[in-house]
Amino acid sequence: MEPIVFDGVGTVQIYGPDGKLKYLDDKITKVTLQLQFDWQKVMGGDSGYAFHYTAQDLADKASIEIPRFSNILAEIFQGAESEKGTVYFDETEQGFLDAASGYTIKAPAKFKGALVAASDKVYLKDIETGELTELTRVASTPTAEQYVITADGNIKSDASNGNKLIAVTYKWSKEKGTRSGLSGIRRPKPFKFVHRFSLADDRTGNEVPCQLTIWKALGGGTTDVSQERKKATSNTLALEIMDPGISPDNPDGYAAELIFGI
């Protein structure tokens, strides 16, 4: 095979121990495989050269860089537990209390969720000092120190609080949500990693199909869920290469292999 320059990105496929596809992404920014083989020098006599070399354990390094988050990435590389179902959000809002119509919280309607009963707290907020004065929730006919709230999140108080700034804290739920639970005893499960990409043959100009397969890997590295203004995060995920043993798909028991269609 003619020498070829590596400059492709391609797609990433990750398969679970059961062989089912768990993750597929074509927006990756980097895939790294660095094969390393080191020796332990055995010295003796007067010579400055070793007379024997003992092979050390293999120190191959593999990683991928992905500029977006997925709960599946957290599951594969951080051992998170992903759950689908009802999720709960802690919300805060600020707004002015109208003397007649009051103030209606926005998040549940905006995200098609529901206000969690009895989770609300309302505070008068001094515009100049920011000082908060908590109001007491009552069932009806509130005074200047009280408020009422309907099931859909409309807040009213005494007319004397009209046009005053309020801060509201509450919980709301959404039936169709995703939760990534990260415990202190989490451990990722092994997976099969495939990087499918194409390169250019500089001699012919033809596109060359290529594939990197790591038959058994364990996740690690950094799954970044930070937020910084005007900057997107990127996940730098490490793959620990394991001895896969032999299987019908991998009868030679290779740990990793590169395939070129040339």
Score class of each variant (00 low, 15 high):
G220S: 07
G245L: 08
T222A: 13
N250Y: 05
N71C: 12
E128N: 14
Q56A: 03
S157M: 02
L239A: 06
I28P: 01
F191Q: 05
G130M: 05
A50K: 05
D7H: 08
Q36V: 07
A144Q: 11
A50D: 02
K230G: 01
H52K: 14
I4M: 13
I72V: 14
F197G: 06
L239N: 03
F193D: 04
F37P: 00
S119L: 08
A59M: 08
N235L: 06
G130P: 02
K121A: 13
I185K: 15
W215K: 09
S63L: 06
N163L: 09
Y123Q: 08
L199V: 07
K27Y: 06
T233W: 03
G253L: 11
L115Y: 03
G16S: 13
G177A: 11
P3W: 04
F111R: 10
I241S: 03
L115E: 04
K231I: 04
F37Q: 10
F111S: 05
E93R: 11
D25F: 05
N154Y: 00
I76C: 01
A167P: 00
R229V: 07
D252G: 07
T178K: 08
V138H: 02
K61R: 10
L33Y: 06
D60R: 01
P3Y: 02
D57W: 01
A139H: 06
S82L: 11
L199E: 14
G220H: 00
Q56R: 02
A232M: 02
V148Y: 02
R68C: 06
P67T: 01
K30I: 01
T178L: 15
S234T: 14
L124V: 11
Q146D: 13
Y123N: 11
G102W: 02
N206A: 13
S198Y: 03
T178D: 09
F69I: 12
V9I: 14
A80N: 04
D252M: 13
M43Q: 13
L97G: 03
P188I: 12
I28D: 01
I105H: 02
T150N: 05
A139D: 15
L237W: 03
D60Q: 02
T236P: 00
D202M: 11
A200S: 06
Y88T: 15
V31D: 01
G19N: 04
I14D: 08
C210W: 01
T133E: 07
T11K: 15
G181M: 06
L24V: 05
Q34G: 07
L237S: 03
V208S: 06
P209W: 05
S47V: 11
S234Q: 10
L58A: 11
N161M: 09
E91R: 11
R196A: 15
A117S: 13
F51A: 07
E207M: 12
G85Q: 10
T213L: 02
A238N: 10
A238M: 09
T11Q: 15
T141V: 13
T169G: 06
